[in-house]
Write a protein that binds this DNA or RNA. Structure first.
Lengths: 202, 202
DNA sequence: CTCCCCCTATGACATCTGTCATCGCCGGCC
DNA sequence: GGCCGGCGATGACAGATGTCATAGGGGGAG
């Protein structure tokens, strides 16, 4: 019995190469490919794969968003995420979205094929290194608003702009930023953004 | 006559898959693989490939740095860069380093094989879209010091820290930042850093 | 030689940011 | 009911940042 696989990655080079390699395994069959989030969802709807292998970063909708959509629409389809640089927060988000596998692109195709089989059989697989990172990063100490405001501060916007976008008073924004900065042990909001990003808290 | 290819990419999944696909072409032979910059140089030294296909982002030394090293050491070896997200500045740097091909990972393996042949035959190939971006981005309006200081400001360090690292007076640093910000039409140094990064000027 | 641009620096000023104290409101928990 | 924590806001203050004028030295172009 062969496992029907959907492959979604915006990098044609990788997607094609991967499809070819996975196709060599005689119990795996790549039944659909997609280059964007929305396309992945559409292809899944049309081909009803057993396992969806999703890149984390795709135009339109990222891998986790696609996984969430598939979870709701095709309960029989297991999802897994493949990513170049895995941050702890992504893993946490992915797991929360019902993703069953989370692997970095540094694994071999051979290994990926095994993991696809495992996921299809019902087990979960998370890359040990990424799991360790996620555990050591721990939970976010930031409150919802602190995280939101920090997010808005990410592109270097001044306080007034952030306040406008968040519909908050500038003073309140500064308070949240201040508290976020102190919780993260950062020197200023920009390093705070960087730290929070590294730990996957925004 | 077969083209001997060196493949360097830190993502095992991509590298392996690509090696397999390129190996299917009967006039291409992947004679070496590497997962880091230094390893790529060592492998090139050992196997003397005709064409080196280098990922832009690798641990140790990025693709352009590797290309520069190879240019000096193995003049008979043509180099080309493959990258996920290509910024204009990278292309410029790559061309200056004597790289003969520059392609995004969104091309197909088929197309990549053709380009490898072309590069081996002595032509150059630059992805049209990336080329257009590079041209429209134009040249950097920043002076050497402005760019350097902006670079140091990238991680959100305060002026005092930047001044220390650049061995400059804090006042001078603020002047450079101010002038860079105004040249880039940014609101503050952090958005200036972002803009300069997008255009490949830092 | 002169002009111009870059590098470096200082001082002054206005504004922005970070921090703290304090307040009221709401919702959950003991 | 009382306590606590999060949310939203204000006011005040110190320190950081952005801007401008100014100035000397050096190097390249005309």
């Amino acid at each position: 019995m062969t496992v029907r696989v959907l492959l979604a990655d915006d990098e044609h080079l990788i997607r094609g190469a991967l499809a070819a390699l996975l196709g060599l395994e005689d119990d795996l069959e790549v039944v659909a490919e997609a280059a964007s989030g929305p396309e992945a969802i559409a292809m899944a709807r049309a081909h009803r794969p057993d396992v969806a292998v999703l890149d984390l970063q795709m135009p339109g909708a990222d891998g986790v968003r696609v996984a969430t959509a598939l979870r709701a629409e095709l309960p029989g389809c297991q999802t897994m995420i493949v990513t170049g640089h895995g941050r702890p927060g992504h893993l946490k988000r992915a797991l929360a979205a019902g993703v069953r596998g989370f692997v970095p692109k540094t694994v071999s195709a051979q290994r990926l094929a095994e993991i696809i089989r495992a996921v299809h059989a019902g087990s979960r697989y998370v890359d040990p290194e990424l799991a360790a990172d996620a555990i050591s990063a721990g939970d976010s100490p930031l409150t919802a608003r602190e995280a939101e405001v920090l997010e808005l501060a990410a592109d270097g916007a001044p306080v007034a702009e952030i306040a406008r976008r968040a519909s908050l008073s500038p003073g309140t924004v500064r308070n949240y930023l201040s508290s976020a900065v102190s919780k993260l042990g950062a020197e200023n909001r920009h390093t705070a953004v960087r730290l929070a990003r590294e730990r996957g808290w925004v």
